[in-house]
Design a protein around this nucleic acid. Structure first.
Length: 830
DNA sequence: TTGGTGGATCTTTTT
DNA sequence: GATCCACCAA
């Protein structure tokens, strides 16, 4: 192309303007923002400003369209234009970022409609956050951009065209509990024993097939001749048929049916792929095959696909995420530009070094190394405790010390591998009156009473929904038991009707008789009546009416227990959630409300989600901590068998995922990181002896400092850890501050029914020696290398029980973890 | 049909 | 230790 001097000058000015305009970004970030054309892979390490890049990139596209990097230039550039650009650059240098319209016209050469941008996330929270930040950058234009989760995006597409696939627009979305119900029905129908095909396993199998986009027919062909798999294929087929009959989609279907729609109706696909000129994907390392396909298909016309992610933070393999998507992105999308963001704005260098060192032990990854301009910061503090009670006391003491020196509790987080670990922490925090807040666990919309109400609503919205009907036909008790239900169901299948249709026309169908028939008919009348009222009343009003007419509320009120009281409270909460929805979506009806519940179910978190301004310590699993940051982080339970989890220890791939989880945990900390582990821990009811996690050993000693507690007199523990001399261990004397029973209030906000009362933690028999077993089995210790006549060499990773019940868990070099009764097993130390 | 009991099982979770 | 579920008695 012939380039004039004016054009050259234009380009150089444009470059300098953008550099100045984005001088709040580092070089790599700026590159990522300005690279708008073609495939782009941004490898964004933890805390490297990933969201900043995404939002600025979207804003840049909205404001300047295809300007940068494209061959487009203003058709006729005048000297005046050049002068205008020069003036603007001067303004910028003087700190004035306001963009005059004529300059914008010179820079933005081909405009892009905001509605031509699609940004995909995994969680609603991420979508919400991105939307807000883009709004702040570009104002009203942000409203037209498609920023939402994969699932919401698919629902939006499906609501328009799903009739082409033979569903109605008021389809329901089944969650995993509903899936189990359907699977159990299928097993019954096919006369398959649940023992040999546990519903949960079947669900996982079906889920995997769906992730791979395999239909029941595909699968059946593939496994032809294999008995078990063939059965699974039949269950899968029955499952699909039932969902369709119920006019229901599961979560996987939201993606798969969208793809199906695209395959069967290319006109629909073409509409969207021509519409979305720019596509961005957040957390790309978490995508599964279906999501990959969706992105691949939609980006085909323009090829402007930008994915942001961190392979080191891929922790959802077990949920279908395929790390290969990010590792092989460059192969899948030729001519990809790769940009690595390695500068970290969150943590001190010691913390980053620890993270870098741990993750280095993984083999399948893209080489990255985090660094910061901040200093080294504090040493990483490692504490060995005798048992989990003591571990929790240590955490409490440290937090109290932090508070007494002017620190805030909101800056602190305690992270653990399993939810079960939260109990002891919770009890101890209560005892010491440290306010805390547990995130995760049972979600609001998963509570029994809430699911019941939702089931009523779903049935009314979609009378074909047999699953919801089964849930509530006898809730509250109406004397309709499983036998009645079974015969109704069978008859419905025979006549190819929904169960509700059967019930409403029971006289013609003649399935039941006498008292039972009367009760069922009564239920039918109730539903008919509600169906009429549903359209006659506003949403909130109707839900209230429903609670009344079904006797759901009165049944709870009569119950008079603490539990039912909390259930009633939750129902009130639900009603106010409905009211809020009604206010925010005056147009939305029942269908929209239910969709909102299925897809946007995090009202629990929203209330308290105020980051470090909170007035309580945050406790959560490592998985839920992804994406968050805290000044002070406690990573507890770093023991072999717990973290890495025993279930993950028999495959290298799963072990690497555990290591990534550890990496995620470490990189949550901004200023101070504690790592704790115990010698003994009660898990699943019986005590076990543990050895420190291998991840601890992967952190260089010069980054760490031992702060183990000194036990009152019993010695031995806390003296030394991994050869590091104890520095002033006494300063952390545990029992330094006694329990303060009062103080703690439920304000910290857990709503779980009927807990709070069981804080009997008197005295604590913590210093009693472990179940170390005298006698001959005492010869074994966790960490011992052993030889088994059948399985060969291995290491004792855990011990449980005592005396003749003492069992050893041994990790064998070949063939995983096995448990043995110590007395009986042909094991010897080597 | 309901309610009680013994036995097995026990990661991680968003949509 | 806690929960879920299949099975059995009333």
């Amino acid at each position: 192309m012939y380039i004039t001097d004016t054009a050259k000058e234009y380009c150089s000015l444009r470059d300098r303007i953008f550099e100045k305009l984005y001088d709040h970004l580092n070089d790599m970030q700026r590159q990522a923002v300005l690279t708008t054309q073609g495939p782009l892979l941004v490898l964004a390490g933890a805390g490297s400003g990933k969201t900043t890049v995404l939002t600025n990139r979207v804003a840049h596209i909205v404001r300047f369209g295809d300007a940068y990097q494209s061959n487009y230039m203003p058709k006729s550039l005048t000297d005046q234009d050049i002068m205008a650009l020069e003036d603007y650059l001067k303004d910028l240098n003087a700190g004035k970022k306001e963009l005059p319209e004529e300059v914008e016209g010179l820079l933005a050469l081909r405009s892009v409609y905001p509605s031509g941008i699609l940004a995909l996330t995994f969680t609603n929270k991420a979508a919400r956050e991105m939307k807000e930040r883009i709004f702040r950058l570009v104002g009203e234009d942000a409203a037209a951009i498609w920023i939402s989760t994969f699932h919401s995006t698919c629902v939006r597409i499906l609501r328009r065209d799903i009739e082409k696939l033979g569903y109605t627009r008021s389809f329901v979305i089944y969650d995993d509990t509903d899936q189990l119900t359907v699977i159990k029905e299928c097993l019954k129908e096919l006369d398959i024993n649940e023992k040999y095909f546990p519903p949960k396993e079947v669900r996982a199998a079906i889920g995997s097939r769906k992730d791979e986009l395999k239909s029941p027919e595909d699968y059946a062909k593939e496994v032809h001749g294999q008995y078990r798999e063939e059965k699974l294929a039949r269950i899968y087929a029955a499952y699909e048929a039932r969902l369709k009959k119920n006019n229901a989609l599961d979560f996987d279907d939201l993606l798969n049916k969208t793809l199906e729609l695209f395959y069967l109706h290319p006109d629909v696909l073409n509409y969207y792929r021509n519409k979305f000129r720019y596509i961005l994907v957040d957390e790309y390392q978490d995508t599964n095959f279906a999501q990959y396909m969706l992105v691949k298909l939609l980006s085909d016309t323009y090829g402007n696909i930008c994915v942001v992610g961190d392979d080191d933070q891929s922790i959802y393999r077990w949920r279908g995420a395929d790390i290969r998507n990010i590792l092989e992105f460059e192969k899948d999308f030729p001519h990809t530009r790769v940009i690595k963001l390695e500068e970290n704005y969150r943590s001190c260098q010691n913390i980053l070094d620890a993270a870098n060192q741990v993750i280095r032990h993984n083999t399948h990854r893209k080489e990255k190394s985090l660094w910061t301009k901040r200093g080294k910061g504090e040493q990483i503090r490692i504490c060995r405790a005798f048992n989990e009670q003591q571990e929790a006391e240590f955490v409490c003491n440290e937090i109290k010390r932090h508070i007494s020196t002017g620190g805030r509790v909101g800056e602190v987080a305690v992270l653990y591998r399993m939810n079960a670990q939260s109990r002891v922490l919770e009890e101890t925090f209560m005892k010491y009156a440290v306010p805390y807040n547990i995130y995760g666990g049972l979600r609001f919309y998963d509570r029994k009473e809430i699911k019941d109400i939702i089931a009523y609503l779903r049935l009314l919205d979609n009378p074909a929904d047999d699953v919801s009907l089964q849930r509530i036909i006898n809730v509250p008790k109406r004397g309709i038991g499983s036998a009645t239900l079974a015969s109704l169901q069978e008859a419905a299948v025979q006549r190819n009707l929904s169960i509700l249709d059967m019930i409403l026309d029971l006289d013609t169908n003649m399935v039941l008789s006498g008292r039972t028939a009367e009760r069922v008919k009564e239920f039918g009348r109730l539903i008919s009546e509600l169906t009429v009222e549903k359209d006659a009343r506003p949403l909130t009003d109707f839900i209230d009416y429903l609670l009344q007419e079904t006797n759901y509320r009165s049944a709870l009120e009569e119950d008079n227990s603490i539990e039912s009281e909390s259930r009633l409270e939750n129902i009130m909460e639900f009603v106010s959630a409905a009211r809020e929805f009604e206010n925010n979506n005056p147009e939305g009806g029942l269908t929209e409300f239910l969709e909102n519940i299925a897809l946007v179910s995090d009202i629990d978190r929203m209330e308290e989600d105020t980051g470090e301004g909170k007035s309580s310590v945050s406790m959560m699993t490592l998985h839920s901590a992804k994406g968050l940051e805290f000044s002070i982080v406690f990573l507890v339970g770093l023991e072999e068998g717990l973290f890495p989890h025993a279930r993950s220890m028999d495959s290298e791939e799963e072990l690497e995922e555990e290591r990534r989880l550890c990496y995620v945990g470490i990189t949550r900390a901004k200023n101070r990181l504690y790592l704790t582990y115990t010698n003994q821990r009660t898990l699943y009811g019986s005590p076990s002896l543990n050895i420190p996690s291998r991840f601890l050993k992967e952190i260089p000693e010069e980054l760490t400092e031992d702060v183990s507690m000194q036990l009152g007199g019993s010695g031995g523990y806390g003296r030394k850890s991994r050869g590091v001399p104890v520095s002033g261990a006494g300063a952390y004397g545990y029992a330094a501050s006694g329990p303060e029973q009062a103080g703690y209030s439920r304000r910290a906000g857990f709503r779980a029914p009927g807990l709070a009362s069981s804080a009997r933690l008197d005295g604590q028999s913590a210093s009693r020696p472990a179940a170390t077993s005298g006698g001959k089995e005492g010869r074994f210790q966790p960490g011992d290398k052993v030889y088994h006549t059948k399985f060969g060499n291995g290491t004792v990773v855990a011990m449980e029980g005592e005396g003749s019940n003492l069992t050893l868990k041994v990790a064998f070099i070949q063939g995983g973890i096995r448990s043995f009764i110590a007395e009986l097993a042909p094991l010897k130390k080597v």
